Amino acid sequence: MWRATRHFSFTLALIFCAIGAMAQNQPSGNPIVPGWYADPEAQIFGKTYWVYPTYSDKYNKQVFMDGFSSPDLVHWTKHEHVLDTSNVKWVRRALWAPAVTHKGNKYYLFFGANDIQNDNAVGGIGVAVADKPQGPFKDYLGRPLLGKIINGAQPIDQFVFKDTDGQYYMIYGGWGHCNITKLKNDFNGFEPFSDGTTFKEITPESYVEGPVMFKRKGKYYFMWSEGGWTGPDYRVAYAIGDTPSGPFKRIGVILKQDPAIATGAGHHSVINVPGTDEWYIVYHRRPLGETDGNHRVVCIDKMNFDADGNIQPVKITNEGVIARGIK
């Protein structure tokens, strides 16, 4: 009787171990969070992954931003209204494409707002600040950081890049034009490059919007979105340069629709697991059969490089990624 009981207990333990292993390897699934979201900004603060997307709805309803945190890319916690227009009085609609960075003991959220069409309108790129990554973020300047159209670039889709020398850059632009500028140390304005210019146009072939930059093995990778944001041809391409301002020559597309899975895959960000060469791409796409332009969802998949340092085409999936904690 004792031997039978012991055998049963051992078998039960094996079953629980198997269930635990299966749960640990359970993928994130795509989308990674419920709801209509787009333009995701992905960051790592401490040992936690964060994703800050645009709330995907009609422009007049885009008056707040939510955030999502995860210890492992699989289990996500929603943080409602990390930023909303009650804390930024000059913003009335079209709160777009957050870019979040940590400096000192503060967190800064850069955003596009009001979808300005000329230099007479109030809006453009603003900055909000908080003591914690979940906010609440409050207006930092009381005005737009950038409210003018320079080099033909609509002031939207800003990305904040910190170089290895500690310099922060802002890369931004819609309407098929992209600029790079050096941020002042306190993020209240811009400082000129060594040649005296403050805004350099770095627009590559086929650029539309959504710039992203990261550094890997001494090279600067510049990525952007192409095509129309409401169409199935929305996609991500990239270039590689020796400096943050390039020059950048388009290499090719690495993210696009798969007619069997989803359409309109684009406007992304990337995650590099600290201390490794593991990379993930976080992006939005449109579910199959969905015709509403604002119905977009946030997804994640692996991003790999070949032996020459080129980004390999990303396979978009319904499964997503398996759990990956930060040590």
Rank of each mutant, 00 (worst) to 15 (best):
D39I: 07
E41A: 10
A4K: 13
Y59A: 11
P144H: 01
P144T: 00
N310A: 08
V321H: 06
H102C: 08
L14M: 12
A113R: 03
I116A: 01
G241K: 05
S69R: 05
S245N: 06
H177V: 06
S245R: 04
R93K: 15
V51L: 10
G35I: 03
Q134F: 15
N310H: 15
D39S: 05
S86L: 05
T164C: 02
V91Y: 00
V63Y: 00
T48N: 04
V160D: 13
L255N: 00
E201A: 12
E278F: 07
G29E: 09
G227F: 00
Q154G: 14
V129L: 09
I251F: 06
Q117W: 11
Q158S: 15
T11C: 12
A21G: 13
I116T: 00
L288T: 03
L141M: 04
H102D: 05
T101D: 06
V33R: 04
K182E: 01
F248D: 07
A239R: 08
P192C: 09
T203R: 04
R286D: 03
P98Q: 08
K89I: 05
A97S: 14
K184G: 13
M1L: 11
Q312S: 06
V160C: 10
A323R: 15
K327A: 09
V51C: 06
G320K: 09
G46N: 07
V33W: 08
I281L: 04
I149K: 05
T276H: 07
G176D: 05
K184H: 03
G152Q: 11
I261K: 03
E319Q: 13
W229Y: 14
K138R: 12
G166K: 10
V160Q: 04
P211D: 04
G20F: 08
K327I: 09
N60D: 04
R3E: 12
G67C: 10
N25P: 01
Y280S: 06
I125M: 13
A237K: 09
G142C: 02
A99E: 11
N30G: 08
L95G: 13
G124F: 00
I180V: 14
A94T: 12
K327P: 11
T181P: 10
Y172C: 07
C178E: 15
D258W: 01
G325A: 10
L83Y: 01
M303F: 11
F16M: 14
L146D: 03
P313W: 01
I254P: 10
I19H: 09
P287F: 02
P27K: 02
V208P: 02
G241F: 12
Y108D: 14
A121R: 05
D292F: 12
D308S: 14
W229C: 13
R324W: 00
R216A: 08
G246D: 03
N304R: 13
V51F: 12
D233N: 15
P136M: 01
Y59D: 15
V91W: 01
D258L: 01
I202N: 08
A130F: 01
F305W: 14
P244N: 08
